[in-house]
């Protein structure tokens, strides 16, 4: 299992051909109290950098982009009922969606944990 990061403050947990995607703890701290999450439909084909989900705080709405190309396999319905999970457990229970990875070469452009830490430092 590998965890990778984007410059847009998303994390990807890679297990075989599946990538589980969420936003980082740094991202949630910047967003503030999350009050609404809109998730993509299962089966949707997402292109890399396409707006895939929306996360809203009291003050503002932010897009969550597909960090890689792939088909949406599963979404985390728990976030619809309890958006605040994004604040309390961004790296864990608050995953957003799972993608079937189309092109593994796209993973090459992402950061590992050390590089992401340096990016947010």
């Amino acid at each position: 299992m590998t965890v990778l990061y984007t410059t847009d403050h998303e994390w990807l947990r890679i297990e075989g051909d599946t990538a589980t995607i969420g936003v980082t703890d740094y991202a949630q701290s910047q967003l503030g109290d999350v009050v609404f999450v809109e998730l993509p439909k299962v089966g949707r084909q997402l292109k890399k950098a396409e707006a895939a989900a929306v996360v809203e705080s009291v003050k503002a709405a932010s897009d969550v982009y597909a960090p890689i190309t792939g088909e949406v396999l599963e979404v985390n319905e728990a976030l619809s009922a309890e958006p605040a999970l994004v604040n309390s457990d961004a790296d864990g229970k608050a995953w957003f969606f799972k993608l079937k990875i189309s092109d593994k070469s796209e993973l090459g452009g992402l950061m590992d944990e050390a590089a992401y830490k340096a990016h947010t430092a």
Binding site: G32, V35, V58, K59
Partner: peptide
Amino acid sequence: PVQYAAGVLKEH
């Protein structure tokens, strides 16, 4: 200040 450490929700 747009918010403090407590955040908008708790401040409200």
